[in-house]
């Protein structure tokens, strides 16, 4: 049987990918950020997941305004890094796991989560930056990756509660897959940031750290927080944090915190990172 052993949450700031791709990771500006992921790289090298289910959002790369799926699952054999206007990131092609992805799509839809099935999709920094942070710069990603894209660009995104429940349904679906696979769920995006308008550059470290505390200890409470609170307190793009609740829902009620990191700034954004382990796994 497949099982979910752990969850990883991390911001997915594009400038982090650019810093790595352009050889600037050792610069004074970036070094403290990458230092916060050294333990994470060691952790995932030891964890050796077979599949990562990576919850992220597309930033007008694969989805324009023609079609805006709330939850979309990537069922393809592979996903190419997107050209976001500067050429595609020089990172490996993302190999999918169509068999598990299709099983998840079927199970989730019958479990009343109406997923959009995606058979062709380029993946942007929202998906590739978390892989870079956790694995560095390998010639090939060391495991399969199933993209799960959540709309957070067009208001309203799904509620925190819906995201938490999707995570719970993902767990049921993974555990009904017969093959013996080790699955780690990633929740990405955030933390506080605003990229637009006169309030651009907003950072709210107090909100972010309270979110990190509560995501671990009281996920139901965090899931009840309305969108308006995120937008007001964490910035218009800080609402990406609802995606972390999908990851949290896929884990045990009580989790072990293997790693926690917080850093300001990465370009316009506060960076947060958690590794949570399932004691039952």
């Amino acid at each position: 049987m497949a099982r979910i052993t752990a969850g990883v949450a991390t911001s997915h700031v594009p400038a982090i990918g650019a810093a790595l791709d352009n050889g600037k990771a050792g610069d004074a500006y970036w070094a403290p950020l990458f230092a916060g992921y050294e333990a994470s790289k060691a952790w995932i090298a030891a964890e050796k997941p077979d599949v990562i289910l990576l919850v992220y959002n597309d930033h007008a790369s694969a989805f324009s305004l023609e079609l805006i799926p709330t939850f979309a699952i990537g069922c393809a054999e592979r996903f190419q890094p997107a050209d976001e206007g500067w050429g595609p990131r020089p990172v490996p092609v993302v190999e999918g796991h169509p068999e598990l992805a299709w099983h998840l799509a079927e199970s989730l839809i019958l479990d009343e989560f109406d997923m959009t099935i995606v058979n062709r999709m380029d993946v942007d920094h929202g998906l590739t930056v978390p892989l870079s942070l956790m694995f560095g710069q390998p010639d090939a990603w060391p495991c399969k990756v199933i993209p799960l894209a959540v709309n957070v660009v067009q208001y309203p995104p799904p509620t925190g509660n819906r995201c938490l429940k999707l995570g719970q349904a993902i767990r049921r679906a993974v555990e009904s897959f017969p093959e013996d696979l080790k699955v780690v769920v990633f929740g990405t995006g955030g933390m506080s940031h605003q990229l637009q308008g006169p309030r651009a550059g907003l950072i709210n470290a107090e909100f972010d750290n309270a979110f990190l505390d509560r995501l671990v200890a009281d996920p139901e409470g965090q899931a009840a927080v309305p969108h308006l609170d995120y937008v007001r307190e964490a910035g218009s793009e800080g609402i990406e944090l609802v995606m972390w609740l999908v990851m949290r829902g896929a884990l045990d009620r009580e989790v072990r915190v293997a790693h926690r990191f917080y850093h300001v700034p990465a370009s316009n954004t506060a960076v947060g990172h958690l590794i949570l382990e399932n004691p039952s796994a």
Binding site: S192, G201, L202, I203, A205, F207, E233, V264
Partner: peptide, 14 residues
């Protein structure tokens, strides 16, 4: 401003 911790939320909520 970003290096100093970003734009403060104080005074920017409402």
């Amino acid at each position: 401003m970003m290096l100093a911790g970003g734009r403060s939320i104080v005074g920017n909520r409402s």
